[in-house]
Design a protein around this nucleic acid. Structure first.
Lengths: 315, 315
DNA sequence: TTGTATGCGTTATCAA
DNA sequence: TTGATAACGCATACAA
């Protein structure tokens, strides 16, 4: 700006006023300054702006691992939306167990991010520090007490899957994944509600999965509906069932979660719970920026978006 | 720092010297300052640092779309590596055709990023501006003339696939994807080199894919080897072949690229070209930081990493 | 409508 | 070893 000021024979603040449009400037001066700025490819220094004003127009995106497909889509949409609104996004991987969470938050704070979008590892644990946050945070895909949250109700999603499988005539049910997940609870609860509680089981992900499923299918002859915690896991399950010679969906029905593994091109085409990731990302960014602009706003957003069960062939 | 200076009865520059370790300070003062800084959860202001020194310790990551699996993995590894070295990463989606490239670069420049990692849309087109860059850039996954580049040789990968398919006894060959891609050229060239040039064809991705493949398999009875430009496309191809009743891998062999769609859990398990994404990311970050620290360094890095063909059942 | 002066939080340069 | 002072690029308060 100082450069441009000299070249156009005005003061630096005047250049600032022209470029930021913060005050009215004589038309001829305005033109002269704008022309000069363009000619010299002037780009405002966001660091200086952030230092002077309180606002950096930088948003932190905290995800356990961007390379999982939910986070990846979230990252794309959130960044695009943020950029559309003049903000930059600083990406931070907190680790699958949230182990790098503290280090990530430190980084976000060093750059004085105006706010943060936070996806929780495991979909429910915090990964946020003990002390109160000193910047606005919107929780994405989990419900954080006292924090704005945008998420789908995984309990309900689990229940939805349970109903679907029950209606399809499966008489036994397996949840594949962490027993502590909300969708597992919803799944089991809904089945119990239908008097099917005794016919359910929960099998953990891991190397022993094939053996576990083998045992299950040897022991029980009933048609079994399986709900996998995510699509990648659902693929493994399908693969295992194939090896075990269990016909799908006749003997075993499989439903995935996330609808992100190209399910419609598999064989059998994978039924899966689809989440409105794009909408979550947009809503989260919108809310975050609202918070940034209205620091003393009250009330906590609790936005529950609906998941949809995409029924294909696998169940 | 000014705060801490007052509380510890020293000057602000002394606090700076303690916290940045840039000069020696009397042990007792050092301890006092450090204790005070910890107590008050002091975090250095990266904006001020960036403004004063020339370095922001901010890296820009330019990808066409973080939600494609290559970019997603790259983003994770690059960010982790960057953070390990004290740098933040600002994420920018340039668009599948690179349409937002200019806007992204502007953003990167506004934040005075020390350098950028750039993945090209389409794997070969630039997405970089006409004028010379004013910041160090490392091209990832494509070879950029005059720029440090880290990539796998897609021509060679294509040739590798061609050899594999030929050896497996396929007598006709199809590349599915953009005919302008390097791997397509390598694929066709290798086949021509084996005297099989007349038995090849290139079919574009798109809605007409099923019809095109149908025609191909009606017209030619030879066993056909197909090479898909990426794994997602390979899945579609497998799905189409299934509908067409073409047995895989007997009548048609399919090889994907990227090895990212859980190929080992499909049926048939997908053979695919695996890329060393992690190594590319690490090497790229390392080189970029080297450039940042040695601005006048000469020579251009041209690091070609080997791709590997993971042979499974589909071909 | 414009210019002068000041401050944002750091690091660097100089003296003491 | 320490402190006073300036500078980075910008926005704002105030005066003209």
């Amino acid at each position: 700006m100082t450069q441009i000021a000299k070249l156009t024979h005005v003061s630096q603040p005047t250049v600032s006023r022209v470029l930021s449009g913060s005050a009215s400037v004589a038309p001829e001066i305005r033109e002269r300054v704008l022309a000069c700025a363009r000619e010299h490819h002037y780009q405002p220094n966001a660091l200086a702006r952030g230092l002077q004003g309180g606002r950096t127009r930088l948003l932190a995106l905290l995800v356990p691992d961007v390379s999982d497909s939910f986070s990846a889509v979230l990252a794309r949409v959130a960044e695009e939306e943020a950029r559309r609104r003049g903000c930059g996004v600083i990406l931070l991987n907190t680790g699958r167990q949230g182990e790098s969470g503290p280090a990530c938050l430190e980084t976000a704070r060093r750059y004085r991010a105006d706010g943060a979008l936070a996806v929780s590892p495991g979909g429910s644990a915090p990964a946020l520090p003990d002390g109160g946050l000193d910047l606005p945070v919107v929780a994405v895909n989990w419900r954080a007490a006292g924090l704005d949250s945008v998420y789908v109700d995984q309990r309900e999603a689990g229940a939805m899957v349970a109903c679907h499988l029950a209606e399809r005539g499966y008489g036994r049910f397996l949840f594949v994944g962490g027993a502590d997940e909300a969708k597992c609870a919803g799944f089991l609860q809904a089945l119990a509600g239908r008097g099917l509680g005794g016919r359910t089981d929960c099998v953990p992900d891991g190397d022993g999965l094939q053996a576990t499923l083998d045992t299950q299918f040897r022991r029980h002859s009933a048609r079994t509906g399986l709900f996998a915690a995510n699509d990648a896991l659902a693929l493994r399950v399908l693969s295992i069932l194939r090896e075990l010679g269990v016909p799908t969906p006749r003997r075993a029905g499989v439903v995935g979660f996330g609808d992100d593994c190209m399910g419609r091109y598999l064989s059998p085409r994978l039924s899966s719970v689809a989440q409105p990731v794009e909408r979550m990302a947009q809503q989260a960014v919108e809310r975050l920026l609202y918070r940034v602009e209205h620091p003393e706003g009250e009330g906590v957003l609790d936005l529950v978006l609906p998941a949809e069960l995409t029924v294909r062939e696998s169940a």
